[in-house]
Simulated assay, not measured.
Amino acid sequence: MARYARSERESLADLLLALGPDAPTIDEGWVARDLAAHLVIRDRRPDAGAGVILPPLRDYGERIRLAATRRPYPELVDQVRRPPWWSPVSNRLVDELTNTMEFYIHHEDLRRAQPDWQPRQLPAELQAALWRQVGPLARMSLRRVPGRLLVQSPGYGEFSAGSRGEVARLVGAPGELALFLFGRQRVARVQLVGSPALAERLRTARLGF
């Protein structure tokens, strides 16, 4: 069985080293060092990592992450590459479930901030694994956006998510849909069909966590 969480992690670690600590990412205000620190904290400090989804812990988690950015960069990347066996989000029992999309998204955060980037040709099995997580992601991401979204991925399926009202249609490969619904709308290669007002709300909404 392919372990895409592991391969995306390895590829991201290789790219972090190749580009260096000051390489841009598509995460506003973050360079490669910041991204690496985020992943290290997520793996190793569940108390701080919880700040991503729990607003009361956000400032605390950000202080811990900023402290991690001061570590030597090769050491930081090595910790990205080798999570501890006891990690609540990266142990062998949960790794594929919790990290396939996480590391695919962050790999693309770094790739797509570089000049002349091009979409990768992802294995069909990885696209299928991402598609299985796109539905729950869409329902979480769209809960604050008025309107309903029909999400379609040729060869993988379709579903709808969001509130009642005006309908738009989002079409793309699973990996591109994941990027859009995770808040990376400006770099996702998708087709968005709907009224100009609803389409603009979706393109500019703060989606994802």
Rank of each mutant, 00 (worst) to 15 (best):
Ile26Ser: 13
Ala5His: 02
Val171Pro: 09
Ala18Gly: 08
Ser87Thr: 03
Gly157Met: 09
Gln191Trp: 06
Leu126Thr: 00
Thr69Leu: 08
Leu170Tyr: 06
Ala32Lys: 01
Val193Asn: 12
Ala50Ile: 12
Ser195Ile: 09
Pro136Asn: 04
Phe209Ala: 15
Trp131Asp: 00
Leu122Ile: 03
His38Cys: 08
Leu181Met: 05
Pro46Glu: 13
Leu130Phe: 01
Asp34Tyr: 10
Leu179Asp: 02
Ala37Leu: 11
Asn99Phe: 12
Leu93Lys: 12
Leu57His: 00
Arg71Tyr: 07
Arg65Ser: 07
Pro55Gly: 03
Ala168Ile: 10
Thr100His: 09
Val193Met: 12
Ser141Glu: 03
Val134Thr: 10
Ala13Phe: 06
Gly194Phe: 06
Arg58Ser: 15
Tyr73Phe: 15
Ser87Asp: 02
Gly194Pro: 11
Glu108Gly: 04
Ala18Pro: 07
Ala129Met: 06
His106Gln: 09
Pro24Gln: 12
Gly157Lys: 10
Val80Tyr: 00
Trp131Gly: 01
Tyr73Arg: 02
Gln121Glu: 14
Ala178Thr: 14
Ser141Tyr: 01
Asp116Tyr: 08
Leu170Trp: 05
Ala113Ser: 15
Pro46Lys: 01
Val40Glu: 02
Leu93Asp: 11
Val94Asp: 07
Glu108Thr: 06
Leu130Ile: 12
Arg139Phe: 06
Gln152Trp: 09
Ile41Gln: 04
Glu166Leu: 10
Ile53Arg: 04
Ala129Phe: 05
Asn91Arg: 14
Gln114Leu: 10
Arg139Pro: 02
Leu142Gln: 02
Phe180Ser: 02
Gln114Cys: 06
Ile26Val: 15
Pro46Met: 09
Pro174Ala: 14
Ala48Gln: 01
Leu126Met: 13
Met140Arg: 13
Ala168Trp: 04
Leu76Pro: 00
Ala161Val: 13
Leu12Asn: 02
Arg63Thr: 05
Leu137Lys: 00
Val167Gly: 08
Arg132Cys: 07
Leu12Arg: 09
His106Ser: 12
Ile105Asp: 07
Phe103Cys: 08
Ala124Phe: 11
Pro74Ala: 09
Val171Gly: 04
Arg184Val: 09
Leu66Tyr: 13
Arg65Ile: 14
Ala48Met: 06
Gln79Leu: 15
Ile64Ser: 04
Gly172Gln: 01
Leu76Ala: 03
Arg70Asp: 14
Val167His: 04
Val77Tyr: 00
Pro146His: 11
Arg144Ala: 14
Ile105Thr: 11
Arg112Ser: 11
Arg203Ile: 07
Ala124Asn: 04
Gly157Cys: 05
Ser153Tyr: 02
Leu142His: 01
Pro115Cys: 05
Ser87Met: 00
Leu177Arg: 03
Ser141Ile: 01
Gln114Glu: 11
Ala205Thr: 08
Arg148Asn: 12
Arg6Pro: 00
Glu166Gly: 06
Leu126Gln: 14
Val134Ser: 01
Ile41Val: 15
Ala32Arg: 03
Ile26Tyr: 08
Ala168Gly: 14
Asp47Gly: 11
Asp59Cys: 07
Ala128Thr: 07
Glu102Pro: 06
His38Trp: 05
Leu39His: 11
Arg42Asp: 05
Val171Tyr: 02
Pro21Met: 08
Asp109Val: 07
Leu97Lys: 14
